[in-house]
Amino acid sequence: MGSKAVLQVTNVLKTFGGLKALNNLNLTIEEGTVHAIIGPNGAGKSTLLNVCIGQLTPDTGTVEFDGQIITGLAPHEISQRGISRVFQTPQIFEDLDILQNVMIPALAHIDGQFTFNAVKDLRHRNEVKRAAMEIIEQMNLGDQLHDRAGAMSRGNKRRLELAMCLVQKPKLLLLDEPTAGMARADTNQTIEILKKIKATGMTKVIIEHDMNVVFSLADRVSVLAQGTIIAEGTPQEIRESEIVKEAYLGGAKI
């Protein structure tokens, strides 16, 4: 590939008390790839994502996005630059209906930086609604448009959150275990959706435990253990790597 790096994590150190959650971690995500990050529980996968979206500030080291350093920026500023994240537990607006849930991120495009402009508001309203409807249809949620989001099943909540991220057309999409806790059928549906997005060429980082998902989607895989990347390569290379089996899979055959 050799295309340019979208996300460049350099020497990031993040400690919680005495624990080094991220230990001088280096990671490069290339444009247009689907990059999976796997690793045992507590390896620092979610911490890594938290650092990327500005939820946590690293003790040392930098995160570069699109050639600019984003460490130290507020979460909304980072989001404005084009990073979207699907959380491990769905973070949606439980009290609002599905259409509203998707309309809000679509509005962020227009005025995430606050402007109090009613005229602009009206002009974009239909456009925003149309964009939201389109994504909702893609996610097969169209028949529940005016249902309260909080009352949906977990699988649907995850799909809704994915819709909320996709409507923003981010340059980089971070997915934190998009299929965890889903029924088999839901998982398959999600994989289908993710494959469809992959075709659009959006750069994605996926944290995942389900190896089926990893090997069916990822272009590259990084293995994280104790806060550092211990191996990186194509899914095939990772599958055959001895270090990985040792650290993560406990030597079991997959």
Partner: peptide, 28 residues
């Protein structure tokens, strides 16, 4: 009924989500 009101409702529902969607919530 405006989208300003919608955003305020969203802040009530989940302010952190608003931030990670790119909204600077304080001016609102």
């Amino acid at each position: 009924n405006s989208s300003f009101g919608l955003k305020l409702k969203a802040i009530k529902s989940n302010q952190n989500r608003m931030r990670y969607l790119g909204f600077n919530t304080r001016p609102y």
